[in-house]
Nucleic acid binder design. Structure first.
Lengths: 178, 178
DNA sequence: GGTCAACGTGCAGTAAGGCTGCACGTTCGG
DNA sequence: CCGAACGTGCAGCCTTACTGCACGTTGACC
C-alpha cells in the first residue's frame, strides 16, 4: 500500500504530518488520510511528496520489503537457462527486487540464444576473464577481461564466446525480466 | 510524462486504444486523454494498466531513455570517491539510467567509508578476487572470490578489506544514488 | 496540577478533474 | 464503395481528492 510507504519515508526522517504537509503544499489531513489508506493521492500530490523526499515517483512504488542480506556462493545458486540458448546463468540476487545480477561462464563457441532477444530493461556486462562478443542489432562488439558493456535491452541482442577459452561474466539487469 | 510512457508500452505490443481499454476495464477515450496528457490517471486506473502490461506501477515512471550501447575500458572510466572513504570506484555504466555498476580494487585495510552509510537502493557486490568484508548494521559478513552479497542499502553498511591481498569487486546499484 | 504546544484524526463541504457515452473525421482492406 | 477499426472532440456526470475546523491525546515545562 502506497500509504505505508509514505508513512515510512516520513517517519524515517522524523517529520510530523504538519511539517511534511507544509513543505509539500498540501493539508495535514490529506496526508493522514493517504497514509491510512482512506483515500489515494493524485499524481500531482504524489509528485510534490516525492519532491520533498528527494525521491522519484517510481521509488514510492518499489516495495522496500527488507530482504536483509543475501549471500550467494557458487554451487548453491539457482540456475536459469536462457531461452533457446546453451548458457546457464547463476542468479546472484534473491530475485524479488528491482535488481538482478547473474553470473555465467561461456565455453568456447557458446551463445546466449539462437536469435537476438529484447526486453524492456537496461543491462551491464562485466567480463571477469576471457573475451565476450556482444551482438546488438547488426553491430557486434568485443569486450575483453576487465572491460564492460552497457546496453538498452530493448535493442535485440545476444552474447557469445567466439574465443578459444572460457569467458566468465557478471551481468546486472534492471528491472529483471522473468 | 506518464502518457508518453503508456503510449510506448501500448504501441510496443501492437495494441489499439480500444483493445487496451477493454482489457483494463476503462474507456478508450480516457486512455486517449491520458496518453496525450490532457488528464492524469488515478492510481486505480494506473494499477489496471500496469496489470495488463504485466509491469509494476514503479516501472511506469522509470524513463526508458535509450542510451544505445556503452563500452567502458579500464583507464578511460570516470572515477568517483566514496564519501569520506579511501576507495576509488570506477563507473562501468553511463550514469544516466536506473542501473549503476561500479568496479573497485580495495588495497589491504581499505574501507569504503569511515561511518556506515545508507541510501534508498538495492545493491549487489560480486567479489572477483580476494576477500571482502561487509558490515551491515551490527553484523559483518565475509565474502570470498566468486561469491556475492546482496543487501538493502537502507541498512547502514560499508565495505572493507581486512585481508592481506587486494580485493577486486563489481558493485551493482539500483537505483543509483548521486 | 495546570498550561500550552504539537501530535494525529473525524467530519462535512467543496471544487476539481477523472471518467464515460456518443459522435465525428480518417484510414485501411476487401 | 462500403465497413470496420483507428484515434479524438465534446459535454456532462459523479466520484473523490482535498480543505478547514474542531476534537481527544500526549508530553514538556513551569
Amino acid at each position: 500500500m502506497i500509504g505505508d510507504r509514505l508513512h515510512e519515508l516520513r517517519t524515517e526522517r522524523g517529520m510530523s504530518l504538519r511539517a511534511l504537509a507544509e513543505q509539500a503544499g498540501v493539508s495535514p489531513t490529506l496526508l493522514s488520510q493517504i497514509e491510512r489508506g482512506v483515500t489515494e493521492p493524485s499524481l500531482s500530490t504524489l509528485r510534490r511528496l516525492a519532491g520533498v523526499f528527494g525521491a522519484s515517483i517510481a521509488s514510492l512504488f518499489e516495495d522496500p520489503a527488507a530482504p536483509a542480506v543475501w549471500i550467494s556462493r557458487p554451487g548453491e545458486r539457482t540456475t536459469l537457462g536462457a531461452p533457446n540458448g546453451q548458457i546457464r546463468y547463476e542468479r546472484l540476487t534473491p530475485g524479488n527486487g528491482q535488481l538482478e545480477v547473474l553470473h555465467a561462464v561461456l565455453a568456447p563457441g557458446e551463445v546466449s540464444s539462437e536469435e537476438l532477444w529484447s526486453h524492456p530493461s537496461m543491462e551491464c556486462v562485466y567480463v571477469v576473464s576471457g573475451t565476450l562478443t556482444v551482438q546488438v542489432e547488426r553491430s557486434s562488439y568485443t569486450v575483453a577481461a576487465g572491460e564492460s558493456l552497457t546496453l538498452d535491452s530493448n535493442r535485440p541482442h545476444r552474447y557469445l564466446n567466439d574465443s578459444a577459452t572460457n569467458t566468465e561474466i557478471v551481468l546486472a539487469i534492471n528491472p529483471p525480466t522473468p
